[in-house]
Amino acid sequence: MVWVPSGQFEKGSNVYPEESPIYSATVSGFWIDETEVTNDEFAKFVWETGYQTEAETGLISNIQLNQLKLNVPGAVVFQKPKEDLKSNSSFDWWNYVPGANWRHPDGPDSSIEGKGSFPVVAVSYMDALNFARWKGHSLPTEVEWELAAANGSQDNANTWQGEFPYLDEGKDGFVGISPVGCFAKNKFGLYDMIGNVWEYTADPWTEDKTLDKRKYHTIKGGSYLCSPNYCKRYRAQAKQPQEDQLASNHIGFRTIKRTHFNTIKKLKEKL
């Protein structure tokens, strides 16, 4: 984990309405995972606890997507549409795929074999929270996450180059998700705070009063699907809502540790 010292920063932006207002936020220091949680790390959690994710157990039958009830285990998967079917509708490139889960993030025929260092995806908010608790950690608040992502740049991140959603030119070296730690660290020594995969935070989504804040949490950081022509959310200030139980193949997470490690840090500083 990497230490992020206490600090004050200007949170938010005026790029998108949900990112405003801009205000001064003060955050106590904390430890945070250097990278997004990987497939290998999540596999260890599953091996030691027997845990099954929500995408594997089918506990999402109360969620509706495109007016269709989801009553079979699975996750939402990005699927590049055919270029001759030009459309601005996300319904054309997002599909609920039965059998998709963290072991098979792109569908039942996909695999994470040989991808132990890739960030785990197709996990729900509760899956991420349970992993964090198993580690004795927490999920970061939105403010903690944004401070940790300070000074991040899309120039050092896995994002989409080309016309989204039809052509990812892979100029950054990757088409799709990359292993963790392939791009430059930010000033705190953290990898992939911007791009690669969105990350869950502990904060409910409260920006849209039409959404039940008990069922949505805030995700931060953008992903490999963020592009200049469609989604300029490869920034520390960017955020979106995500249904708690609906796993997706472009969302992962990292964890933080507060009190115990903070105490150790203070003791070391006194010595």
Rank of each mutant, 00 (worst) to 15 (best):
M193V: 13
K266S: 13
F45W: 01
I63C: 03
K257S: 12
C226M: 13
R258F: 15
I32K: 08
W102T: 02
L211H: 07
K11C: 00
Q154H: 11
R214C: 09
W93R: 09
T255Q: 08
V2C: 03
A236M: 05
L211G: 01
A148R: 09
P98V: 12
F253E: 02
S178P: 08
P228S: 14
S13I: 04
S61P: 03
V15D: 11
A236W: 05
N14D: 15
L190R: 09
A43N: 06
K69F: 15
K69C: 15
N151G: 11
Q161L: 09
V121R: 13
L167T: 06
F42C: 05
T255A: 14
Q154V: 11
Q67L: 09
Q67T: 12
S24W: 09
L65W: 12
G162T: 00
K232T: 15
I256Y: 04
T255C: 11
R258S: 10
W3Y: 07
T218A: 13
V143Y: 12
N88T: 01
M1P: 13
A128I: 05
E163A: 11
L167R: 13
D168Q: 14
V123F: 15
F164I: 14
I256D: 10
V37Q: 09
G221T: 14
P165S: 05
M1A: 09
L129E: 06
W160I: 03
N71I: 08
S13A: 05
V72D: 03
P204V: 02
G107V: 01
S223W: 04
Y191M: 05
V180M: 09
T201L: 11
L65Y: 09
S87K: 11
T201C: 02
E56I: 02
N101E: 03
F9C: 05
K115M: 08
D155K: 14
N62L: 07
T206L: 06
K270I: 08
G162H: 07
S13P: 06
Y16H: 10
I22Q: 01
G50C: 04
C182Y: 13
A25K: 09
Y51C: 00
L65S: 11
T57Y: 07
C226R: 06
I251A: 09
E113R: 00
A184V: 03
G170F: 09
T201K: 02
G162I: 07
E34A: 13
A55P: 00
D109R: 14
C226F: 14
N14Y: 15
P105F: 03
E144Y: 02
L68R: 14
S20V: 01
M126C: 10
D106H: 02
D155R: 14
N158D: 06
T259H: 13
R235G: 06
K185W: 00
T201E: 02
G114S: 05
Q79S: 00
N88F: 15
K257Q: 12
W47S: 04
P73A: 00
T38H: 12
G162C: 00
P105A: 01
W3K: 10
V120N: 06
K187Q: 04
S117L: 08
P204T: 09
